[in-house]
Nucleic acid binder design. Structure first.
Lengths: 291, 291
DNA sequence: CGAAACTGTGTACAGCATACACTATTCATT
DNA sequence: AATGAATAGTGTATGCTGTACACAGTTTCG
């Protein structure tokens, strides 16, 4: 959900430029072709095509290209992640990349999974589900903030690569000692995942602004400004009341989420929310234990 | 967070095409210019420029253009939302749009806020925070699923328009009888918002697939396929165990989130998670009441 | 009336993903 | 060793994109 900034054009349903022999002008992509696309993408992500025996050897590996793509996105954001930019980084012409990936979408699929990495391994023994889930949540949030461009890509549910699965595996491991049924486990996984994703949006946005050279103060100011418009509108009585409720209200430079009184940092807000979510999960686990 | 599909190129940090007089080749956009951009965008969203007295009257209103943009995105997705497509819809040449909005970003800012609409008004009296928040959550989820392209835009925290604020206002109203402090209210708002956003990603992705003409079965199949790859990998023992845990494991056509045994629908999964979150919030409210 | 300010049009352009034709390379088969 | 097929990377061209700029027509103020 939610606000947005720099974004490069990605993953068009129909191919973007170029010609397409059988493109019906307005057809919304036939179900079959779309489904096949998803399958192809998934296969490309999971199955390395066999190295052909004939012909000259490739200079680079797919992994090299992916690393180049990631470093471009890390340095300059998703909008800068163009085939030309990646090609230049590896010392290729643009078209050479198409020997490694059939299109930009496939390259991004691979880059996303690689950039996600794997969750940090647990150091000691299992410390109990609550602490383990907390650790997972912070790790995931940190990963997203470290590569804010990952969150700029719209969710399509598929394809999901090896690393994506490994984050899920880790969360299931964190929940190992809860004694929940498989169905409940999957649901809990969804809850935690949903909260962490949703709650990280703001931090990710800040990370993005930072990487574009914007100071934290400037960013907070920009975000606070919109919120503060509520103050002068009768349409937002409660928001207005909260924003003016304490200590002289909100200065223009107040951090976001804007808070009167003792200001809480974004991290504190995340931790606070996570505690609520974990409390709710704990309640369910406890009530289940007797059964 | 999350997977992804068709997406149109949007909101580049530096303007996309065209020339830019003072474009330093690699400059990451100076802090000042970025901040000014955000301020300009916010102003465009909130302040209607005064109608000039001289010159011919505009044929359309900004609102007309926005509606055209929304209907293009509704019908054909975000990738199809191009200046040319919008112009054609209103019967203009492409360039005429620039008399109404300085650039595509501004048009999208306005379209996003308009498309978000306002939360449905409460019909009866306040039914207690829990039920009210629940209603809000379902309304927001429904809104996002109805316009899945909204969730394809990456979050930038700013600018936030009038309707965006109105959703927040409504959530605060739902929380009115909790007796929470302003700071706690804002945090609770963040928690609920985060869960709803994050937990709707999958449903939104399905909605997007649907609007592209993909059947639910096909979509579920595509999503399930990746998950099921875990089964054959020793790297994902827990995921694998869950997926094979019951009733012959997961068929290729199983719905997502994939669940063994009694399958739960996506909506049930959302409801389940929401209950956990609300439980956690309730716990906090109750423990606060004594204090 | 005429100048100023505005509206919508036409044209131009750089950047994008990518189709296609090409040369150079390297192995498998003879 | 010689030959031919499959491959790697290059070069060029195309359609689409957002948008700068110059223009023609319209309206209103001085």
């Amino acid at each position: 959900m939610t606000g947005r900034t720099g974004l490069g054009d990605m993953r068009s349903p129909a191919t973007k430029g170029g010609r397409r022999r059988e493109d019906h002008p307005q057809a919304p992509a036939s179900p079959e072709s779309t489904a096949l696309d998803l399958q192809k993408r998934s296969e490309l992500l999971w199955e390395a095509p066999p190295r052909p025996s004939r012909g000259s050897k490739p200079t680079m590996s797919r992994e090299d290209i992916v690393q180049a793509a990631i470093s471009v996105a890390d340095q300059s954001g998703l909008a800068a992640l163009t085939m030309a930019a990646v090609a230049e980084r590896v010392g290729f012409t643009t078209m050479a990349l198409y020997r490694y990936f059939p299109n930009k979408e496939a390259l991004i699929d691979a880059s996303v999974d690689a950039a996600m990495g794997t969750p940090p391994p647990r150091s000691g023994p299992h410390k109990g589900w609550r602490q383990e889930v907390q650790g997972w949540a912070y790790a995931k949030r940190a990963m997203l903030c470290a590569r804010p461009w990952l969150a700029e890509l719209p969710f399509v549910a598929a394809p999901h690569g090896p690393n994506w699965l490994s984050w899920h595996e880790a969360l299931l491991e964190a929940l190992a000692d809860t004694g929940l049924s498989p169905e409940d486990l999957m649901d809990m996984l969804s809850v935690v995942h949903a909260y962490v994703s949703g709650a990280s949006d703001t931090a990710i946005s800040l990370a993005r602004a930072r990487s574009r050279g914007m100071s934290d103060e400037l960013w907070a100011q920009a975000v606070g400004r919109d919120l503060c418009r509520a103050i002068h509108h009768s349409r937002y009585p409660r928001l207005s009341a909260i924003l003016t409720s304490q200590s002289g209200g909100i200065s223009d430079a107040s951090p976001l989420p804007v808070r009167a009184g003792r200001p809480r940092t974004m991290e504190e807000g995340f931790a606070f929310g996570l505690e609520r979510v974990l409390d709710g999960i704990a309640l369910y686990i406890d009530s289940n234990e007797g059964a």
